[in-house]
Write a protein that binds this DNA or RNA. Structure first.
Length: 427
RNA sequence: GCGGGCGUAGUCCAGCCCGGUUCAAGACGCCUCCCUGUCACGGAGGAGAUCACGGGUUCAAAUCCCGUCGCCCGCGCCA
């Protein structure tokens, strides 16, 4: 008999069918047994009026009659006639996958990742992530961006600093990319508009709920901009369209977390960093420390301000200080202490960083000198700027952080299948 | 790196402050039995913990002290 997918059962009312899937739960009432069976399209209840020898977790093939059943919360069920174990669970599960909530501590959730991922509510995170990635690809292509994949094994650190992983590369030393920055800029000189979805690696030993050492960055870079507001407008438009797609296609998954996805304003509020400092002080009586651009408390307050003042979950903070920004960021013409750099804060957490980049060779070299950065290993990047790079800018967007914030997950690690942090290299 | 916290059955946890009838309680899961409409099914019974490890204080330590190991969080840095 041919397998019928669970979401197709309603079309087979009254017919004898066969499904394949995993037993999520079993309720034994003596002479009647209820099974909840899951395949990749959904879940359904199967009822047997006899004793059956199966365990929760088994992969099974079930033959039975599809029928309408108002007594079942699914509205439909299968009157089971025959059940066959395709693959058996040979050990007790370490926790209860049948409950609505898994209720595990983070280390347990991640240690038993191969099993915790089977829980519908955990799966929902990654189904939403799937929609999110598809949305990004779709919208970016429609905006004329070409998808590129740039190397992650690099000969030199992208942006200086010590936060890159060193690896052995035959007889040389290499590093893992902590950003596609150089390559995506170079590609502006080729395709004008490019985007990338790729792994980035950061060797920072951070211990927070919003950092990991390997994450997926959604990058973009676009040429012939008139100023960095062109980049902000593009990002605004892209986010709005993606969030609408997630709302439409991911409703069943959002519902599992009781989340109504944020409305993205047509024009997300934009506030200068210097303004945010004043607002934090005057409105919330908090002083953002002078030795940083903005601290996490400052970001939370910026998010709070956006909600209270503009009823927006999003806010752009612009004009980050020159001394805090990397050498390729364009300095403000109006105020040399500031740059044309911005962050996007979503629900009080930074999820995107972007800027207009310096596009002339001369300015780039001058800025490097001022920042005391040696060109060693990045000659290939600098060379490009001798050959007429158009004015351009772009962003790096943390994909997992976005999912974390959409679902309000307590840790970014819940939004990654197999997260890598300071303490975790397996599974 | 600095600061704070945690470690008790397979899982989630109570007990720790104020050491002693609690030979560590409960819930979920597991095993046995009962139940023909459950949907977090219900009911009865049962097994499962050298209280992270090592040392100390004490008549007595899960509980107080010291050390070790493991982990989590905040900050820094950033997406």
């Amino acid at each position: 008999m041919e397998r019928i997918l669970i979401n197709q059962i309603e079309k087979k009312e009254g017919q004898k069918i066969m499904i394949k899937g995993r037993i999520l739960n079993m309720r034994n009432l003596g002479n009647v047994v209820f099974l909840i069976v899951q395949d990749y399209t959904g879940t359904i209840q199967v009822v047997f009026a006899k004793i059956i020898e199966v365990k929760i977790g088994d992969s099974v093939a079930i033959e039975g009659i599809a029928k309408k059943e108002p007594r079942s919360k699914y509205g439909f069920e299968i009157q089971g006639e025959n059940i066959k174990i395709i693959s058996a669970t040979v050990e007790d599960l370490p926790f209860d996958l049948a409950k609505n909530d898994l209720n595990l501590n983070l280390p347990t959730l991640l240690d038993y990742r191969t099993l915790s991922l089977r829980h519908p509510k955990v799966q929902a995170i990654f189904k939403l992530y799937d929609i999110f990635l598809k949305g990004y690809e779709t919208v970016m292509r429609e905006e004329g961006f070409t998808e590129v994949k740039t190397p992650k094994i690099l000969g030199a650190a992208t942006e200086g600093g010590a936060n890159f992983f060193k690896i052995k590369y035959f007889d040389k030393e290499a590093t893992l990319a902590q950003s596609p920055q150089f390559y995506k800029q170079i590609m502006v000189g080729v395709f004008e508009r490019v985007f990338e979805i790729g792994s980035t690696f950061r060797a920072e030993p951070h211990f927070t709920t919003r950092h990991v050492n390997e994450y997926i960055s959604l990058d973009a870079e676009m040429g012939y901009i008139k100023d960095f507001y062109d980049v902000i407008e593009m990002l605004n438009k892209v986010i709005k369209r993606i969030f609408l797609m997630i709302e439409k296609e991911g409703k069943q998954y959002l519902d599992m977390y009781n989340i109504k996805i944020s409305e993205v304003p047509d024009s997300i509020p934009r506030v200068k960093l210097s303004e945010i400092r004043k607002i934090a002080k005057e409105k919330y009586n908090y002083s953002i420390p002078d030795d940083t651009d903005i601290d996490p408390e400052g970001e939370r307050l910026a998010g709070k301000y956006a909600k209270e003042e503009f009823n927006s979950d999003f806010i752009f903070i612009t004009h980050y200080p020159w001394k805090e920004k990397p050498f390729y960021t364009m300095q403000s013409k109006e105020n040399p202490e500031e740059t044309y750099g911005f962050d996007l804060i979503y629900k009080g957490l930074e999820i995107v960083t972007g800027s207009q980049r310096i596009h002339t060779y001369k300015e780039l070299i001058e800025n490097m000198k001022k920042k005391k950065i040696k060109p060693n290993g990045m000659e290939f990047y600098l060379e490009t700027f001798k050959f007429a790079m158009p004015p351009h800018g772009g962003w790096g967007w943390g994909s997992e952080r976005t999912i974390q914030q959409i679902l309000e997950l307590p840790s970014i690690k819940e939004a990654i299948l197999f997260p890598r942090d300071v303490k975790r290299l397996v599974p």
